[in-house]
Simulated scan of single mutants.
Amino acid sequence: MSVLWVFLHLLILSWEDMKDQMLSFWLLLELLLTGLLTALWNGREIVWFPGLFLLVVGKLSGERIGLGDGWLLLALGMWLPYGMLMEILFLGLLAGAGYGILSGKKEIPLVPFFTVGFVLTVWGTII
């Protein structure tokens, strides 16, 4: 059930990112808080580092990487273990970089690529 919850949020956020290059604060907050409550309830470890790192990089780079992407990774860290989150980050950045190079675009929405990374990572664990 939690996989579906996260996936639905990723789909909506992907659409927002492609359309407006902005992410809904309230949707990110909902994903983060429900993940935090679920993690605390289940005694699961919360993964802070990747999201916080991306927020710092985004701030230091003048938001060349959007702060919304950092907040999304922070929210995903409430739901996913470190290894899965790093795999999603790696796959998303790799796919996004490939798309940027092939399309010649300098600014691309990252959330759709994180969503692809999520699907590939979750699919790989299910199989």
Results as ranks from 00 to 15, higher is better:
35 G>W: 07
36 L>P: 11
38 T>H: 13
41 W>S: 13
42 N>G: 03
43 G>E: 11
44 R>D: 12
44 R>S: 12
46 I>R: 07
48 W>V: 09
49 F>T: 01
52 L>G: 01
53 F>W: 02
53 F>S: 07
54 L>R: 02
54 L>M: 13
54 L>V: 15
54 L>Q: 03
56 V>C: 12
59 K>T: 15
59 K>W: 15
61 S>N: 08
61 S>I: 10
61 S>G: 08
61 S>Y: 06
64 R>C: 12
65 I>V: 15
66 G>F: 00
66 G>S: 08
67 L>K: 06
71 W>K: 13
71 W>G: 09
72 L>C: 09
73 L>N: 04
76 L>W: 02
77 G>R: 00
77 G>D: 05
78 M>R: 01
78 M>Q: 10
78 M>K: 06
80 L>Y: 01
81 P>W: 01
82 Y>S: 06
82 Y>R: 04
83 G>V: 07
83 G>L: 04
84 M>D: 02
84 M>L: 05
84 M>H: 00
84 M>P: 00
85 L>V: 00
85 L>E: 01
85 L>D: 01
86 M>F: 02
88 I>N: 00
89 L>Y: 00
89 L>C: 00
89 L>I: 03
90 F>T: 07
90 F>D: 02
91 L>K: 02
91 L>M: 07
92 G>L: 09
93 L>A: 09
94 L>R: 02
95 A>P: 00
95 A>G: 07
95 A>Y: 08
97 A>E: 03
98 G>K: 03
99 Y>A: 13
100 G>N: 09
100 G>H: 06
102 L>M: 14
102 L>I: 13
103 S>Y: 10
103 S>L: 13
103 S>V: 11
105 K>N: 15
105 K>I: 13
107 E>M: 15
108 I>T: 10
110 L>I: 08
111 V>L: 03
112 P>A: 08
112 P>E: 11
113 F>D: 11
115 T>D: 07
115 T>K: 00
115 T>Q: 07
115 T>E: 10
116 V>C: 08
117 G>H: 04
117 G>P: 09
118 F>T: 09
120 L>V: 14
120 L>F: 12
120 L>K: 09
121 T>W: 03
